Amino acid sequence: MKLLIVEDEPELTASLLSHLQDQQYVCEVATTFAEAEEKLLLFEYDCVLLDLTLPGGDGLELLRQLQARQQADGVIITSSRDALDDRITGLRLGADDYLPKPFHLSELSARIAALVRRRRFNGSNLVQAGPLTVDVLARQATVRGQPLLLTRSEYDLLLLLLANQNRVVMKSTIAEHISGDMAEHFNSYEPVYTHVKNLKRKLSELGIGDSLRTVYGLGYRFELPSA
């Protein structure tokens, strides 16, 4: 899962990064309005943690831009501006949640997990695809009860494919999803090929390797074989 932290307080940013990276999220940071505006224009995120008071602009304007583009990024406002008007405006502009500062990191984690479940998997902790089961909250996968042992990148790739089951996921989308804005510095898609190859091998060892299909020239699709 890929997150954008829009926050200009250095100590809080460091705490958020440490906590969320420990939970295996891919995290990017924007510390000004202009930096956040650019990242939101160029990339998509599973969740944006958005402070409203930013150098160079108001976070509510970023929400207006997302709404105007009909961009599907989930947004949790994290702000010391706890006025009712700001809450109502933020939610009307498409924010999914509003968490006033100061907040506990454990509560933030729970709200991020809830947002991702709600947006991608209809609120369920368990994602089922034939014999494959993924516990989104525990970040664990099994096939017919057998553990599917994955690296962080392989797990994120699998979840991305499941969220887009039966649809092609472009190689560029996979690169951004598992590597964040570092993907733009790749000279090739070799890291994507490596993660896909390793995931397919592990799925094959448990008998469902045919579910991960290559769409040549475009990307990959997770599709259960016809019975």
Rank of each mutant, 00 (worst) to 15 (best):
N164K: 09
G74P: 10
D73A: 07
H19N: 10
Q128K: 12
N198H: 07
Q67M: 04
A141Q: 06
H104D: 10
L63T: 00
S79W: 04
L105A: 06
G57K: 01
D8E: 12
G59C: 02
A68V: 09
Q146F: 13
N125H: 10
K197T: 03
L137C: 12
T78R: 04
S15M: 10
K2N: 14
I77A: 02
V136A: 12
S179G: 15
G94I: 05
G209Q: 14
L148C: 08
R111S: 02
T32Q: 06
K39E: 10
L218G: 11
R152C: 08
E176S: 14
T53S: 10
I178E: 02
A68P: 08
V26P: 00
A72F: 09
L41D: 14
L16M: 08
R152K: 14
D58S: 04
L3K: 03
T214R: 11
E184V: 15
L212S: 07
L158A: 02
D156V: 04
D46F: 04
K202H: 07
L206G: 03
D156S: 13
K197G: 12
L137P: 01
N166T: 13
I5Q: 02
F186A: 14
R64I: 01
Q140N: 14
A113N: 13
L91V: 02
L199Y: 01
D210Y: 10
F186D: 12
E154P: 04
D181A: 15
Q71V: 07
Q24E: 04
A141W: 02
R119T: 08
M170V: 06
I77C: 01
L49M: 09
F222W: 14
V48G: 05
